[in-house]
Each structure stands twice: as C-alpha cells, then as structure tokens.
Design a protein around this nucleic acid. Sequence first.
DNA 1: TCAAAAGTGTTCGTAATACACCCATGG
DNA 2: CCATGGGTGTATTACGAACACTTTTGA
Lengths: 232, 232
Amino acid sequence: MSRLRLTAAVTVDLVVLTVRDGSLCVLVVRRGVAPYAGELALPGGFVTEGEDLPEAALRELAEETGVSEVGGHLEQLATFGRPDRDPRGRVVSTAYLALLPRLPDAVAGSDAAEATWLPVSPAGAPLGAETLAFDHDEILALGLERARAKLEYSPLATAFCEPEFTVAELRRVYESVWGQPLDPRNFHRKVTGTEGFLEPTGQMTAREPGRPAQLYRAGTARLLHPAMLRPA
Amino acid sequence: MSRLRLTAAVTVDLVVLTVRDGSLCVLVVRRGVAPYAGELALPGGFVTEGEDLPEAALRELAEETGVSEVGGHLEQLATFGRPDRDPRGRVVSTAYLALLPRLPDAVAGSDAAEATWLPVSPAGAPLGAETLAFDHDEILALGLERARAKLEYSPLATAFCEPEFTVAELRRVYESVWGQPLDPRNFHRKVTGTEGFLEPTGQMTAREPGRPAQLYRAGTARLLHPAMLRPA
DNA sequence: TCAAAAGTGTTCGTAATACACCCATGG
DNA sequence: CCATGGGTGTATTACGAACACTTTTGA
C-alpha cells in the first residue's frame, strides 16, 4: 500500500429484467432510508472491500431476488459518476444488466423493504409517469436499449426462458421486449434455421391448446448468424 | 455530506485509436513512476474532485495528445475494478474509447514521459509480443473489439478521417480497422447509397494518382441502414 | 499511350417479408 | 366437426459478393 487518496464510494446498481404475462418488467425497490427515502429506485448497494464488481452485482442480485442467476444473464452496462449524483458525496456506480426467467411471485424475503416488478411501457418513457431516484431513469433507459439491441444479434432472449422452452415462448419474449408482434411462421423458420441458436430436446409439450410443440434448449452460439432484425 | 465511507480511488484509462499509414494504432505511454515504472501502459489518470467521468477522459486526452477532440469520437467502454488490479490499493478505472484522425507526429509536448503510437497487429493478440501494465491488455482488447463492431452499424469510421475526405480514404479506414481488403467498387456504392452516411461537398480532389475523387463530409445519421457488414 | 484510381452496370445467391396452406391436438 | 396454435411451401423484394466495364486524371 501507499499514499493512495481514496476519493469515492463505489456501488453497483442493477437493471433486472424479466417477462411477465407478455410484459417486459423491471425490478424496483422502495427505498427505506435517505436519500430519496420512500421513492422507487433500482436495486443496488455498496461494493465491499476485496470484492470484484461482477461479484458485488451477483451478490446484490441474490439478495434482492433470491436467484443464483442460473440460466439468466448478467453483464456490465455502464458507469455513472456525476459528482452530484448522490447528495451524500462522491459515489461512482457501475450498472449491471440482468435478464431472468419469470420468478416465483414472492420476491419478498428479499433484503429491500419492498421489491416489485414494474412493467415498462412499450414505447416512449420506460415507466409510465413513475420516476426513479438518483439517475436511475437514465440507467434504466440504457439497460432497456441494450437489451433490445442484444436480442437482435445474440441468443440472449433464451435467458428470459425456462431451461426448456418452445418456439412460441421464445417468440413471446421477443414480442414483449420489442413491443411489437412478429409473424409466428417466419419467426419459427428463422430461429430453427439459425445455426447454434436452438437445440431440440426431442420432447414435446402441450401446455397450450392446439398442436403440441417441440421443446428446445439454448444452443451454443454466442452470436446469431444471420441476426434477428427487429421490424421497422 | 454524511458518513459515507470512501473506499476507492477512481481513474480513467484511454484507448486512443488512429489510423497511420494503413495501420490501426493505439496510443501508449512509458510509465515514469511505480508501479510498473518503465513499462508501457494506456494513458490515463485520476479523476479529480468535482469532475465527471467524461470530463476527466477529455482532460486526459488533451493532456496526452493536445487534441480537443474536434471531429473525433469519445465513448465509455467499461469499468474495471478487480481488487488487486493496482498494487497501491483499491483503484476502480473507467475506460474510454477515443477515435481520432491522424495527428501531427509530435505527440511529445504531452504530459506523459513518452507517448507513442503502437500498431496493433491485424489478427490475434492486439500488440505483437508487447504487454501492457495493469490489466491494460484486457482493456485494449475490449476497445478494439468495440471499435471493429461499431464500424459496422454506425458512421463512426468518419471519426478517423479529416473533416473532408474521399470514399477511398474512408475505405482505407475500414480496411485498417478490420485488417482485410474490401472491394472498392461495392464499397463505393454502399457508402454513397446509405442514407445519411455521407454528404457530398461538391468539391473534387486529386491528392492521389488517378481520376480525381469527390469530397464528402460526415452525414447526420447515427446508425447505418443498411449496416456495413464485415466479410467473413 | 499506359498506369492508376474513380465510378457504373449486371449477374447471382442469400435472406427478409407476406401469406397460402397443411398438421395435430382439445373440446 | 371446428377452433387453436404448430409448422411448411412459395412468391416477391432487398441486399451482398463478384466482377466486367467505362471514365478521368498524371506520367
């Protein structure tokens, strides 16, 4: 060690997304303490001594949702460090984006006073008239943009699904995240034809009325060729 | 203010890229002080009190290159915070990516003991056998990947060019960054046909042997439609 | 007249869209 | 039987790759 001036506190904030009943939803907490006590905010917290940033993000995710991130996805989003972004002093926050399959409803039992899933409106402002504490509206907007873009060229949509899923379930993920309907026939051909995207299990399911569908697992591809372009 | 525990020092590191004589080059400095004294590293430095992160990146860029970033491009890359990444203690560093047109050779007169342009090898390891201090190899690799990807769907290649440039000059930027030749005929049609990418000045130039070429300025588009896909 | 680079036309394969149509189940 | 959703076939259109060809300059 030596004369290093420690000038900031470091936090991680989480944009946790999931799809519930055809709507893209984000996990928010009601803050219990100042600043912004009583207001909605993204989950997050301080990085502890000796802890790496992804480690801290994973820990916070587990604390807020009880999820150990199996089958989901976690990636760094961006870092926010405006000197006045936290009234307590210099706080530099690295935001992470998490995509999870639908969770058992009780997110209660979590650390935060109240953790709830808020639907993000299909277009325009992410939430309805709601506003989040700190600069979290900006962070959420960036997370949504990133998630929407990544569905195009990566197989990330599978992170929103159960380990085994049907083509229709995957399509509803795309429709929810992009906020627009897709042609089921073309969608089917595209995802099944894209190398490494889906891996058939050989099993069938009849969770819904109509003809039973094949079950798939996520494949090994990390980039989609060709990409799933979203409609104009 | 209040009882906020300041646990880290915050720095910015820069991946500054330019194209020189057909090679993609990165700006590196020879460190003058411990740790890693005498070794090569990315330029960067501590974020000062009351300074925002992009502000600090811009300041460091000016100090190292004397450039006020006119015509270039600066964006946040990612943040690195492994607890042991700096032997002096907890240092969280936000990396920025800068793309600049070719500079006057004398980057001397800069802050760093020695600032030089190092060509990045076309494929495989970014530099030849060189290794950078700290985790800067990792940061550089991420910056290169980001730059290569962004040339596909954004008009960012123009940030490597002078304010007015020819289609051939733009093509040489793509060839240098991607490390592979492109068909001049198809490239010409594609860039001139993509809405908002290029704006003709009406001027001609004859900087090179052969038929004079039209001069263009960067257009207003922020996303390319259709994208410039790099060859397999 | 020749080399070199700018720019156009044409052909061909691949992929996106739109939509007609058949298949397999539950009621 | 029919409603519902799963899945295939096919025509049209857009774009990328390859490459022959014309244009305009300097030497």
